[in-house]
Design a protein around this nucleic acid. Structure first.
Lengths: 214, 214
DNA sequence: AGCCCATGTGAAGAGCTCTTACATCACTTC
DNA sequence: GAAGTGATGTAAGAGCTCTTCACATGGGCT
């Protein structure tokens, strides 16, 4: 697991000084991200990733079993960053739960917009979750942030609506808006308002429907 | 355009007696749908589609410029069916607008579940809309059904909230739930309730937030 | 009947995947 | 420190698939 350190005693931006790359695993993931960003999740091959990282086509097989394993690792890393991102936005319900939930929504859309490659790998690459349990777990950890927020809000609402249901509704709403309207810069559809405003309005209406005092 | 009739006279299920296939374009689309259903939108190739239709690998190039053109045509056909599906569910606001909107939601999820191949081609294939204007138009015609429903509901709500915004919210919600929870039979995540119930509850809460009398 | 062009075929070139044998380096052990 | 050892990368190649060419076929029009 401890794959974080670069083995060469670094001294500069010089990328490959010797025979060994030194950090090929990370370099492959970065190359894959660039290719996904440029040509979509289906638009890259194992050999192309190797070429892009400056190694022979056989080298990646030392680190990943096949293309899907690389894609799954990109997605797993994406979910971990996503969890961080959402957790920072939630910021332990500060200044208050309602505002913090709004920040989660903005963070969700910001992630989809600024990290389209991760977002594609996570949600659109079609990786079978049953073959990659660690990927499923990473996704559930990210969802847990939204669920925690829903629990905090539920406590202040009349009748204490089920937090899991609220979390699923909010996640689906954010995901739907991100998928349909906030992908890449060439937005897929024109809108009368920004995706962020659209999501904020939806969440506000939804919470009012649950008895939140606007 | 008149591509409906089979040119060869005979009777019988015999598929290709002569040199020409007779209806290759439609056969390729059907083969592509089967392959998308089996292996995902990225899991088929032009040559494989040809093989599946029983012709040589070069034959499809007479009907579609490349793989993307075939995929775009599948998606366009999918949007047209989708529009029909939603329109039937709406049924001109019968028996009443609220019930009919619920039927649209159920139809949305039913389409995603029973036609996963079309759904994948429409929303997950990553076809650039700017390259295929007829595809964008087909998508907008389908969205217009939801917008019509939103307009009917808005008229009965206090303050007449903007129908376009309502339609976008409902579409995003349905799309998010379909993408996350109602894909294929190997559902991606376990749920405490069916996707249909989840969506129905969300729409109900949302409309209550807009002042709908439950 | 005969021309014409839409439609389909077959062969060839390019690229990808994955394997096997070998080369090189980092770290350990004496 | 020097040799051993395992991890990491290279080179070469078999088998496959995709895509493009020139060529074959036959339905429809005059």
């Amino acid at each position: 697991m401890g794959w974080s350190g670069n083995k060469r005693g670094e001294g500069g931006g010089d990328s490959r000084r010797g025979y060994h790359h030194g950090n090929l695993r990370e370099a492959l993931i970065e190359a894959a991200l660039d290719l996904i960003k440029a040509k979509g999740p289906a638009g890259f091959t194992f050999a192309e990733t190797a070429r892009s990282a400056g190694v022979s086509p056989a080298a990646p097989y030392r680190h990943f079993r096949d293309r899907d394993a690389l894609m799954a690792d990109v997605a797993r890393q994406g979910f971990e960053r996503f969890e961080q991102f959402l957790s920072t936005a939630w910021n332990d319900a500060r200044p208050d739960a309602f505002t913090a939930l709004g920040n989660i929504g903005k963070a969700y859309l910001a992630f989809a917009r600024t990290e389209p490659a991760y977002y594609s790998a996570m949600f659109e690459a079609g990786i079978p979750l049953e073959d990659h349990p660690e990927l499923r777990q990473a996704g559930e950890r990210a969802f847990a942030i939204v669920r925690k927020a829903a629990e905090a809000l539920s406590a202040d609402l009349p009748g204490k609506p089920p937090a899991l249901m609220m979390a699923l509704h909010i996640w689906a709403l954010a995901h739907g808006i991100a998928s349909l309207f906030a992908r890449g810069d060439s937005g897929r559809r024109s809108l009368p308002m920004s995706p962020e405003d659209l999501l904020e309005a939806a969440v506000l209406i939804y919470l009012q429907g649950l008895g939140h005092k606007g």
